[in-house]
Simulated assay, not measured.
Amino acid sequence: MTRALKGSGFLGLAVMMAVGLHQFVIVAGGSPVPPWMIGGHAHLGVLSILAIVMGFAVPALGVTGNVRTAVTVLFIAGQWGIPGIVWLGEGFGLTFLMPTGFLWGGALIVSMLIMFYYSVTGPADAGGGGSSSFVPGDD
């Protein structure tokens, strides 16, 4: 499942970069970028970076089984749902979809609360924060 998080993160960054280039074309043509496009772009970028981080944090904190699946599915749904609803609702005039933003935001919050629980209840050395036998070289 962490492959899904990492893959979704990198795909999200690629989509975010493509949207950024589109925004550049709009600006270069002398027009302002619509605020809804900027908001979706920013949210997708941040959430995609966090998806990649989550791809490493989930196994590092020992999240397994159905909880691991729940964290992954909830996070990916929120990662794409939040910017998607901004683009669809505001950008394409499908404003009746806007209330689903609470669903996508809630999915992200639940995912983060599960990770919070694992981070504070797991072993102190979970996540690689403890001492190591590795000695860095003198460069």
Rank of each mutant, 00 (worst) to 15 (best):
L108D: 03
V58K: 01
L94A: 15
I26V: 12
G40D: 00
D125T: 15
V46N: 04
G105E: 07
I52R: 15
I52C: 12
A126E: 13
V67E: 03
M54C: 12
V120Y: 07
V86L: 03
D138C: 11
P123Y: 06
V135F: 01
L11Y: 09
A57V: 15
M1G: 11
M98K: 08
P83H: 10
G9I: 02
A28I: 02
V67H: 05
V71T: 10
V63E: 10
M37Q: 12
L21F: 13
Q79P: 05
G101C: 04
G91C: 08
L50K: 02
L11R: 03
A42L: 14
F96L: 12
D139Q: 10
T121C: 04
V27S: 03
F92Y: 14
V33M: 13
G89Q: 04
S132E: 04
P34E: 11
M54A: 11
T72P: 09
H43L: 06
G78F: 02
L61G: 10
G84W: 03
V33E: 01
T2K: 14
A18W: 03
G39N: 13
M112S: 12
A77W: 15
T95N: 12
G62S: 09
N66M: 13
M37N: 06
W80H: 14
G89K: 02
Y117T: 06
H22M: 09
P32D: 08
G39H: 14
A60R: 02
I52P: 03
I109F: 13
G9W: 00
K6W: 12
H41W: 06
L108W: 01
P123V: 11
M112E: 01
Q79Y: 02
F75W: 14
A107M: 12
L113M: 11
T95H: 04
F56N: 11
Y117V: 11
S111W: 01
V110W: 12
M112H: 02
F56P: 04
K6D: 08
L13G: 07
T2W: 15
L21A: 04
T69C: 10
G29D: 14
